[in-house]
Design a protein around this nucleic acid. Structure first.
Length: 655
DNA sequence: TTAGGGTTAG
């Protein structure tokens, strides 16, 4: 059996396993029988069996069969990756380039491990070629790792490889490293449409649609013909901008070209999605009907279109007529009821979905948690959280943010923080939600601490800055707030928006610095909104500044003459300063203009019973108990270092 | 390299 050498051993072994006769003359190629065996390998046990028999006949350790074994087990059957690592580490004394490449490719989930293999390859004086570095780059999940691979490519003289450059370009674009992306982009070969496409799609994904269009113009100006990838990117771009005019011109451009047509399923779906985003339901419907082949994405996109324009009846009818439904279809239906506050239908659809054996995913749970938070149903939220844990679902950034939001909004800031700490992949929203929770619970210092901890991992966005400013406003951290506001452009590259100016005005106004607040309003680059004048008016009330209140009221009236808030506030200011005549006058003006005051109402559900309260409402049967609890809370707050001395005063006034 | 569903503030 062994006298014919290695090849024959393989063939004999193969016939043994397959119980068929092999003709050694017909297939002398050494690797062929191994391939046949491994291709037939259908389970982990089978793989082990083949491996065991190969060991027994002495095939393990030889470079060629090992390369095939590792390749098949690691790449085609990822569940056998541990075996590949074992085979590579202990049974391959002399790995060749192919084995190294295969291992690096198989270890794409861990750059650290892939890099160790790469280094051991260099130590064995085996030099990488373009594909090896491409595999290593695929393992790089962070920019620092990608930069490391980039350096190797430069040293090895492999940067002229377009596939490699484009992967690198995509990595830098997706991570917002524009300077590095531009450097790589400048190295591209002159006719490379793909690099332009990556730049366009990268900009679109980052929300820089205008930049994407600029890139497209540059591409056309340089004489390159856009392909279907470019058009698809442009359509997403039009959707983001809700620019149907531009979208229609792209559509017209597509129709003029035979090779890029909307009958192409992917492009047709992209076109449909664009019309849906632009809320052009008729054009969307026509695009949908014109699709010769429709897939589940087409159906789901059309469904989203109906929901977007509020036509729930058509949406439901479309759902009922779908040839098949996937998890996205169910989630979209649940979401449509959630957005319309129809919680009964939402719960019913959720139950129907489970009854049809469609298992909910993190998206389903995120929708359910967000709704529970919206309506303040802590118990329902807890039940969903429990289900997430029981199902062994990983809490990602979306679900995590929704859960943190649920717990802090329902009063349980501690539980929110426990959820926050357990999230392994925190994105900017997760951090922002937690900071907001601390801000609204009056833990200003904690919010600031978390903000500085966050900056070691994530770049804050404009919402984060707003959350920190809100924390400063709620906790009277005036200096900290002013410092953050003045440095946000320089430190974070964020131009203050009207919402940031609103916080600044509130921050100054609440601490009695209304002249400075007015100065900010006069100097801000945009027109002050009604909430800015409203904040000004309300702060003037707290500090009895009648003169400034009158200015704010006049401005507020110009913006919203029909709203009662401004009238009531000014009337109260006059009343608080014993100017009863003025106060009555304001009430008269309100009546003459037909402005009605609606009482603000708070509510809470206890044991399924709704209790609601308006200001100074003492009708509740347990009012006395509540009053004593408020006194107790106030005294507690006085002892808490995070609350300034005058924080509890308004609470005392309500008692 | 391209297409569908989810989170944060106001």
């Amino acid at each position: 059996m062994y006298r014919y050498g290695r090849g024959i051993r393989f063939l004999s072994f193969t016939s043994m396993v397959n119980k068929t006769k092999w003709d050694p003359i017909e297939s002398l190629e050494l690797n062929h029988p191994t391939l046949v065996l491994l291709e037939k390998c259908s389970s982990r046990d089978h793989f082990r069996q083949i491996l065991g028999q190969m060991m027994r006949i002495g095939l393990i350790g030889e470079t060629f069969p090992m390369s095939r074994l590792i390749s098949y087990s690691a790449v085609s059957h990822p569940e056998n990756l541990d075996m590949s690592i074992l085979l590579f580490t202990y049974f391959t004394p002399h790995p060749n380039l192919f084995i190294y490449k295969t291992m690096i490719s198989a270890l794409s989930f861990s750059f650290k491990q892939a890099y160790v293999v790469y280094q051991s390859m260099l130590r064995s004086s085996i030099w990488p070629e373009k594909q090896t570095l491409l595999y290593l780059l695929k393992a790089a999940k962070h920019v620092s790792a990608a930069k490391q691979v980039h350096c190797h490519a430069v040293v090895m003289g492999l940067v002229s490889y377009d596939y490699f450059l484009n992967s690198l370009l995509k990595m830098y674009m997706n991570n917002g490293k524009m300077d590095l992306a531009c450097k790589v982009f400048s190295c591209r070969s002159s006719s490379d449409v793909a690099s332009f496409n990556i730049m366009i799609v990268g900009h679109v994904k980052k929300g820089n649609s205008l930049e994407a269009i600029k890139m497209f113009r540059e591409m056309v100006d340089s004489g390159l013909e856009p392909d279907e990838f470019t058009i698809s990117g442009l359509l997403v771009c039009c959707g983001h901008l809700a620019d149907v005019r531009l979208g229609r011109s792209v559509h017209a451009w597509m129709e003029r070209r035979k090779h890029i047509s909307s009958s192409n399923l992917v492009l047709g779906n992209a076109l449909l999605h664009m019309y849906v985003k632009c809320k052009e339901i008729e054009l969307g419907r026509r695009t949908f009907d014109a699709l010769r082949v429709k897939d589940i994405i087409s159906w789901n996109t059309m469904f989203e279109g109906f929901v977007k324009v509020g036509d729930l009846e058509s949406a439901r009818s479309l759902f009922n007529h779908m040839p098949c439904r996937d998890l996205v279809s169910w989630n979209s239906l649940i979401c449509s009821y959630a957005q319309n506050d129809d919680l009964m239908m939402m719960t019913k659809v959720f139950k129907d979905m489970v009854a049809e054996n469609v298992m909910p995913d993190t998206v389903t749970m995120t929708i359910l948690v967000a709704v529970a938070a919206e309506v303040g149903e802590l118990n329902q939220g807890r039940w969903i959280h429990g289900m997430v844990v029981r199902m062994g679902m990983k809490i990602n950034a979306f679900l995590g943010s929704a859960l943190i939001n649920l717990y802090w909004k329902c009063g349980s800031i501690e539980k929110a923080f426990v959820v926050f700490r357990d999230i392994t992949e925190k994105d900017v929203t997760v951090w922002t939600t937690m900071i907001t929770g601390f801000a609204f619970h009056g833990y200003g210092r904690k919010a600031l601490e978390l903000f500085s901890e966050m900056q070691e991992e994530e770049m804050p966005n404009k919402v984060t800055i707003l959350a920190v400013l809100t924390a400063c406003v709620h906790c009277r951290l005036v200096d900290e707030g002013l410092e953050l506001f003045s440095s946000m452009k320089e430190n974070y590259g964020i131009e203050p928006g009207i919402e940031h100016y609103g916080c600044l005005v509130d921050l100054l106004g609440r601490s009695g610095r209304s002249t400075e607040a007015k100065y900010v309003i006069d100097k801000m680059p945009m027109k002050p909104s009604r909430s800015i004048w409203g904040a000004m008016l309300s702060n003037c009330r707290a500090h009895g500044n009648v003169e400034m209140a009158e200015i704010a009221w006049r401005e507020l009236l110009k913006l919203e003459p029909e709203k009662e808030g401004g009238y009531v506030l000014l009337s109260n200011i006059y009343a608080a300063n014993n100017k009863w005549n003025f106060s009555d006058k304001i009430r008269e003006v309100m009546e003459s203009r037909g402005v009605k005051k609606t009482a603000g109402c708070s509510s809470i559900v206890v044991d399924g019973v709704l209790h609601d309260f308006v200001a100074a409402d003492k009708r509740h049967p347990r009012w006395l108990n509540m009053q004593s609890i408020i006194y107790f809370l106030n005294s507690e707050m006085r002892l808490h270092p995070d609350f300034p001395e005058d924080f509890w005063v308004p609470f005392m006034e309500t008692c």
